[in-house]
Design a protein around this nucleic acid. Structure first.
Lengths: 167, 167
DNA sequence: TATTGTTATACTCTATAACTATA
DNA sequence: TATAGTTATAGAGTATAACAATA
């Protein structure tokens, strides 16, 4: 099957269903995070990463997988710092780098939103799934994620496409 | 299992993997649509809907499932109209409504981006999946989507959460 | 020279509320 | 009164490029 063939109807259906599901999930989750803890989803992710890492990460570590530009991270980190949820300081090992630390307030804030967050995810996503669905979904998503990560992320956009130059 | 219990590790893993996969997919797709056809993903979706509907839909029809506010749709439709890809006119049946029509240029633009779009989706999402994965994923996503649609969409955010008032 | 991170800036998108017009 | 849609406006987020500082 050539790479340029059209998606068959089942693939198309899966693609659209996946997009719709995640869009609705994302919307629900963002509402909850904003209402329950005044956090954007990106800020939430950054806090999760920091707590998982038991404290300290560099800006570059932190950016990986969360944000697609360095300045975007600086912006979000600036908001988190202003809110007192993280601290930034020059890294002693490498003075170019910035060491980011969660504060106690940051941990507290995360603890505050997490139950509601989980509740939304459970209600929207997991409620209609059985254990074997979970296993299958887990297997599939991990496989796809590994596949995506193994590709050069920035070349996801095809270089030259029929029509690219026609504008 | 109570609704407020923590997500077990497998659920958490599935949730994060799903989010990452769709985030990477979304990013790849948006880059391609912008580079290959100067369209945002929302605009792409609107064109797809209009073509699927064989021409004409009302603004409200069009909004459903694509956008979370009416003004957001007006904005995007305004861009599409300015680009000559759609037309808006008062609906004869109900003079409050606006009838939206794809132009030939709109169809052409969609035809222009679609191959590249499909290529990106295939490469990122479907490449590592076998037929039985597709079946499983299709079944699961359709089930979840039906479940989400059956809930009152705007109450996805819990009303009052521990900590809601502590800010 | 390459890398880390920030800043300035411009732009896109979204949401709320107020508004018009029709049913 | 309720519904369809637009407008005004303000805010959140993102990306690019230029920049400073360290490796």
């Amino acid at each position: 099957m050539a790479e340029t063939d059209a998606l068959d109807p089942e693939q198309l259906g899966v693609y659209f269903a996946l997009k719709e599901v995640v869009s609705l999930l994302q919307h629900g989750v963002e509402q909850q995070l904003r209402a329950g803890g005044d956090l954007s989803y990106v800020q939430f992710q950054l806090l999760v990463r920091l707590v998982d890492a038991e404290g300290q990460l560099t800006m570059t570590d932190l950016a990986d997988g969360v944000v697609y530009s360095r300045s975007g991270l600086t912006y979000q980190a600036g908001l988190l710092e202003k809110a007192g949820l993280i601290t930034r300081s020059t890294c002693p090992d490498d003075e170019r780098a910035t060491r980011v630390t969660v504060t106690d307030a940051g941990r507290a804030r995360l603890a505050e939103v997490l139950p509601g967050h989980i509740q939304v995810v459970r209600r929207l996503l997991f409620a209609p799934l059985a254990q074997n669905d979970l296993n299958a979904l887990s297997d599939i998503m991990n496989r796809v994620r590994d596949h995506m990560r193994s590709r050069p992320p920035r070349s996801a956009a095809p270089r030259k496409q029929r029509g690219d130059t026609a504008r």
